[in-house]
């Protein structure tokens, strides 16, 4: 467990020293959302209608784009070999990597999302369910994205393949995430949808690290 925390600290220190890696998903999020009013027209009413979907799809893509980098540099410099030889349980080590990824992408996206929600004229009353949904949902996305990253880390250009492998698994998160915001807009409780997202998160925490560990062993072996 202490080793797990040490790994988390290491990953966060690495991320902070290369701020561009943290900034990239946020910049992507900001740019794409800023483009939508230009493409769809500035009518506040229609923007608000599209807002839940736009915010969620953009967050999903921002997460997908950054997933590729999680194990890349460790694979290139041989750190991954060392991790696999470590006597520590790989399940927890992998969880530390995924946790660091979520803290530097999903958490930040969820925290800045209210600003962009207001920009798209989303009613302030539903921002709570948007942020809660994003907090839970992006964690699931990070867990799933790392499964793809572990399988494609041995390839020189794995970005496209990751998308093909992982995008189908992202879809349930997208459906329930947007449904939670829509439910709040319609004046009904968003809790059932958020509970579904939380259930997905529990399942992903239990299973995804196993898949990542197996994927990493295959990638390093090949």
């Amino acid at each position: 467990m202490r080793f797990c925390l040490r790994l988390l600290l290491r990953q966060l220190a690495l991320a902070v020293r290369r701020p561009i890696e943290i900034g990239q998903p946020l910049m992507f999020f900001a740019m794409v959302i800023a483009l939508f009013p230009l493409g769809l027209g500035p009518d506040p009413g229609s923007l608000a209608g599209f807002a839940p979907g736009v915010l969620w799809v953009t967050a999903l893509l921002a997460n997908l784009l950054s997933a590729d980098t999680v194990f890349r540099s460790d694979f290139d410099d041989g750190s991954l070999e060392q991790l696999l030889l470590s006597p520590q349980p790989l399940f927890l080590s992998v969880l530390a990597y995924i946790g660091a990824h979520w803290l530097t992408t999903g958490l930040l996206l969820a925290l800045v999302s209210p600003v962009f929600a207001l920009m798209l004229n989303l009613s302030p009353a539903v921002i709570g369910s948007l942020v809660m949904g994003l907090l839970l949902g992006t964690a699931v996305l990070s867990l799933l994205g790392c499964v793809g990253a572990s399988l494609t880390v041995g390839l020189k250009r794995g970005g496209m393949l990751i998308s093909l492998l992982i995008l189908p698994l992202y879809i349930p998160v997208l459906i329930f995430g947007t449904a939670a915001v829509q439910a709040s807009l319609d004046g009904i409780s968003a809790v059932p949808y958020l509970a579904m997202l939380a259930a997905m998160l529990c399942l992903a925490i239990a299973l995804a690290p196993l898949a990542v560990a197996a994927g990493l062993r295959i990638s390093v072996d090949a």
């Binding site: 600290l9 220190a13 410099d77 750190s79 991954l80 070999e81 060392q82 991790l83 030889l85 470590s86």
Partner: peptide
Amino acid sequence: YIGHQPAVKSLLSPRENLAWHVSG
């Protein structure tokens, strides 16, 4: 195991590299 790759993170200092080493 010491392989061909140095397994050293260039963004960390030598001290941090050892303290946070992934072989753990």
